[in-house]
Computed example of a mutant assay.
Amino acid sequence: MPALPVVKLSQSEKEQLLVLARNTLIAAFNPNYIAAKQPLLTERLKQLQLGCFVTLTLDGELKGCIGHIETDRPITELLPTLTNSSAFNDLRFQPLVESQLTSLSIEISLLSKMQVVEVNEQSELQSYLKGTSLGLVLSEGDRKALFLPQVWQQLPEPKEFIEALKVKGGWDRGYWSSNMKVEVFSVTHFSEESL
């Protein structure tokens, strides 16, 4: 059974969130900027509580990606925190510098609720995922790893997708355990380039 679809946003609401994220980055370098340039946010956005990831790309290359699977904060409060974390706290990359702002693109991914998938072995999960474009979370003990659905573009085969996610989480490619928790989700994602 596929994950539940995430809430639908209007074009205007997507634009409001992207402007909020962009203004957050500008304000990180120019603290007085945000007060004068804050986007008008709808009441619906101010109350919407969804998991979210902010992905930053610089000249087409990943520059940062940080998110929360679930939250009890409105997206309008969570988004600036995640935007700054993606820009300055993703340990895989050097922190963003102001001169990179003009070449930077922002993508926002809003997550549906997680749905547990009961499987006994990796081959069952591969069959389940074949032909889907679902996000995937694997967890066991204190290890947890997540791939957004967009990763399917780089890793289109379920076996490859799952094994790369296991490596990301610190497991061996061939590892599987009956204690492995499997969750799937869908996203609504949009970027400055797509609007």
Rank of each mutant, 00 (worst) to 15 (best):
P2G: 01
P2Q: 05
P2R: 00
A3M: 03
L4H: 13
L4R: 14
P5H: 06
E13D: 11
K14P: 04
K14R: 14
E15V: 08
E15G: 07
V19P: 00
V19I: 12
V19K: 12
T24W: 02
L25M: 09
I26P: 05
F29N: 13
P31S: 09
N32D: 13
A36Q: 07
A36P: 00
Q38F: 13
T42Q: 05
R44D: 11
K46W: 02
Q47E: 14
L50D: 06
C52N: 04
F53C: 04
T55L: 09
L58V: 04
G60K: 10
H68N: 06
H68P: 00
H68S: 05
E70P: 07
E70A: 14
T71H: 04
R73D: 14
P74I: 00
I75D: 07
L79V: 13
P80N: 06
P80T: 11
T81Q: 11
S86M: 03
D90Q: 12
F93K: 13
F93R: 12
F93A: 04
Q94E: 14
P95H: 04
E98C: 05
E98H: 03
S99N: 15
Q100C: 07
L101F: 13
L104D: 08
K113Y: 05
V117Y: 00
V119G: 07
V119E: 09
N120A: 10
E121W: 00
E121Y: 03
E124W: 04
L125N: 08
L125F: 02
Y128S: 06
L129W: 02
K130V: 01
G131L: 07
S139R: 08
D142M: 09
R143S: 14
L146F: 04
F147Y: 13
F147N: 01
F147H: 02
L148A: 13
Q153A: 15
P156Y: 15
E157R: 09
P158W: 04
P158E: 11
P158I: 06
K159E: 12
I162V: 15
I162A: 09
K166W: 09
V167P: 00
V167R: 15
K168I: 01
G170W: 09
G170K: 08
D172T: 03
D172K: 13
W176K: 11
W176L: 10
S178I: 00
E183I: 03
V184D: 12
V184L: 09
F185P: 12
V187T: 15
S191W: 10
S191V: 07
E192V: 03
E193K: 07
L195R: 01
